[in-house]
């Protein structure tokens, strides 16, 4: 289980200042291979800033990032991707006008030699895309189907499958379920479960406690740029998580009036 292994990523005392704004004031999180680590927090808690430092978009002002035990400096997202940290952003995962197969291999196009030319190997790309989609439970009309015709959940799934196919060891998912319906959310959550079982470390960012409880192994709550603590599955109730996210304010009264649906 998770605690017997060394963490694949350790973020220690990460601080990030934007001018006079302190977005992160010392956040520490570690992620193990094969676990789903949920990062919870309300809007403005610093979730986005934090994952952007992990994926190489921002450089931390203070603190260190250890990847597979060694200290890492990511200058840009490309460095993080090369190291094996892939990020799937909510809206920016796919290009709607391009086919699923072109999207899947975007940035990693397979090539074959034809005489003096190196051409895009469409046959290979189409075959692999269909196989991978089948594994994820998405039925395509064909590999040339445009991504625009897929639902939001399917797009997230294609993006996740793509990251895993190209060797991601750490998969960061930025609010993958926040814009989805019930059924699509279930599909994405089951995809996360499949990916975790292959030994990939998943960092799942969300502000929905129920989605987190469904797949998470450990839960870290961020509030006002600080870690409020990390809890293992079974050590914490959804109500406690909810209260921590809200900054310790009692939501009980509100929850009573809404019938426990928050």
């Amino acid at each position: 289980m998770a605690e017997t292994q060394t963490p694949i990523v350790q973020m220690k005392g990460i601080e990030k200042h934007f001018g006079s704004v302190i977005a992160l004031a010392g956040v520490s999180v570690d992620v193990h291979p094969g676990e789903c680590h949920c990062l919870l927090g309300d809007n403005g808690a610093g979730k986005s800033t934090f994952i952007k430092t992990m994926s190489g978009v921002h450089k931390p002002t203070r603190g260190e990032i250890l990847f597979e035990g060694a200290e890492m400096q990511f200058d840009d997202p490309r460095d993080a991707i090369t190291a094996g940290i892939a990020t799937v952003y909510q809206d920016l995962a796919m290009i709607p006008l391009m086919s699923v197969s072109r999207n899947f291999f975007m940035g990693n196009e397979p090539l074959k030699r034809v005489g003096p030319l190196k051409l895009f190997d469409h046959e290979f790309a189409n075959r692999v895309t269909m196989e991978e989609m089948k594994k994820m439970g998405i039925n395509l009309r064909g590999p040339d189907q445009a991504v625009g015709t897929l639902s939001g959940g399917e797009r997230q799934t294609v993006a996740i499958a793509r990251a895993v196919h190209f060797g991601a060891k750490v998969l960061i998912l930025d609010e993958p379920t926040s814009a989805l319906g019930v059924r699509q959310t279930a599909n994405v959550l089951s995809t996360i479960d499949k990916v975790r079982k292959t030994g990939v470390a998943v960092v799942f960012i969300t502000h929905n406690v129920r989605h987190a409880m469904a797949v998470g192994d450990r839960f870290t709550v961020l509030n006002r740029g600080k870690t409020l603590g990390t809890a293992k599955r079974g050590e914490i109730t959804p109500e406690e998580l909810q209260d921590m996210m809200a900054g310790g304010q009692e939501l009980v009264a509100l929850e009573g009036s809404l019938g426990g649906t928050v």
């Binding site: 997202p77 490309r78 991707i81 990020t87 952003y89 920016l92 995962a93 796919m94 290009i95 709607p96 006008l97 391009m98 072109r102 975007m106 940035g107 990693n108 793509r162």
Partner: peptide, 15 residues
């Protein structure tokens, strides 16, 4: 195609 379809999404995957 990627650059014109969505430049930011393309950059995120290294185009």
């Amino acid at each position: 195609f990627a650059a014109g379809g969505d430049a930011q999404a393309a950059r995120y995957v290294g185009v």
